[in-house]
Design a binder for these strands. Structure first.
Lengths: 248, 248
DNA sequence: CGGGACGTTGATAAGTATCAACGCCCGTGG
DNA sequence: CCACGGGCGTTGATACTTATCAACGTCCCG
């Protein structure tokens, strides 16, 4: 499907693109060099599975570039995505043996991994890592709860608008363009993946995307390209009282 | 509505019913006595609001007894419950000024509170508290994600069965009766609160409760009393592949 | 006795899922 | 080089689940 990229063998932490957002962001240079010793990079192609739910997982790590999803599948095949992992997001849980969810790369993906045992040891020794991990986990908990509102109470149209504005917001933060009125980005998800995220069918996703396009809220450029002329309008469509961090 | 109970003025941490489950569970006796100094109890009547979303919140704390809910309300009044707080659960986020959600007592409630500033200071000094808080937050994140599957992919009947089995499980854990085949408990929620938790209307909740009763999966004793003769049957109705921790 | 909170049940409407057909794009192999 | 096929997306017709609107019942308290 895609060509195999040559893995980047090793990047200095100090030159790392997620240096000041990831789990290591609070570390001093000596702590960083300890991490440097136990870290290694892994590359995944779009579509590849990083780990399967319940498989033993002997590492934790950060997304350096690309996008991955966390999802859970019921016995009969219904699946629900429970997390979207963008650069700087953390994967894996210290103190647990197996993975709790399927982790799948939806684009080519680079991860910075730490073997779990040494990472756990480091965590008990360097509070800066544990502190940052707590902070990130609390943020993820907030995001999960925000998503519960989307899943439980929003209409299909609002769900789509919510997903688009969350992705736009997260890219804006990563690229430091948070105050822009407009946004354009490539959707890192197929219609089916969007459906799994939103608790809808792919047909409903497709129809609502068409509807938002017809109404001029978004412009579609090819299958994946999204242009949002007016973020505040999209946020309005999402039915949020909060502006989602835009235009504060 | 209910009589005001005389507050328990002070309980020794060592005699506290949630001593070994709450955020303090890892603490040594000297750490416990530091917590003892900054703690105070607050009582709430059923129906009372503990804090409103976005209100300043100068404390964090643990539920000692009773039940509370975390919920979020959209501009137009739609509300979604995003958490159910049972004894030993933690409320509030260190490092944030305002509350993120409405916290409401759904039964008479006793909370063990810590003023936020001293608690945050203590957290940086005693890793046992931060460690336990990280662990609890990761558990909550898992619970939130499990709930996303319920909200996004389950039918009304499965949602009701899921809620009942989660409540049964949590009570069983609190009371150390985890391996019982049957369970009976009082629902700490009205039909409307259940609906807000499940992303349904109260009418649908009522109908599905009646259906589960008609089919013999549950027995209703009055409005709130629930008897589950066979937990495995309820879990089957919930559509879970995991048994939710029962009958392992 | 009246009123209000809570719960149940019924009739109907609305939103979304399901089943099905079709279009586009791109890579592969004859 | 072109035809084929598969992955992905769109659109339509219809079915089904759940929401909405409404009536009524029960219990408890003033």
């Amino acid at each position: 499907m895609h060509k195999l990229k040559t893995p980047e063998l090793h990047v200095e932490c100090s030159a790392c693109p997620i240096r000041h957002r990831a789990v290591c962001s609070r570390c001093e240079s000596d702590e960083l060099s300890q991490l440097e010793e136990i870290k290694y990079y892994r590359n995944f192609q779009a579509g590849q599975t990083v780990v399967w739910s319940d498989d033993p997982m002997d590492f934790v790590g950060s997304v350096v570039s690309g996008v991955a999803t966390l999802s859970q599948t019921m016995e009969d095949g219904r699946t629900q995505m429970v997390g979207l992992l963008l650069p700087s997001d953390f994967v894996g849980r210290p103190g647990r043996r197996g993975a709790a969810y399927d982790v799948t790369a939806t684009s080519d993906l680079v991860m910075c991994c730490f073997r779990k045992k040494p990472f756990e040891k480091l965590m008990t020794e360097t509070p800066h890592i544990a502190q940052r991990l707590l902070e990130m986990t609390l943020d993820e908990l907030d995001a999960a709860r925000e998503w519960m509102v989307v899943l439980g109470r929003k209409t299909a149209r609002e769900k789509i608008a919510s997903l688009l504005s969350i992705i736009a917001r997260r890219y804006a933060v990563l690229e430091d363009r948070q105050s822009a009125r407009s946004a354009s980005f490539d959707l890192p998800l197929t219609r089916e993946a969007m459906a799994d995220y939103l608790g809808l069918t792919l047909e409903t996703v497709s129809r609502q995307m068409s509807a938002l396009k017809r109404d001029g809220t978004i412009i579609l450029e090819g299958k994946r390209g999204i242009v949002v002329r007016d973020m505040s309008r999209l946020i309005e469509e999402a039915g949020d009282d909060s502006d989602g961090g835009f235009l504060v």
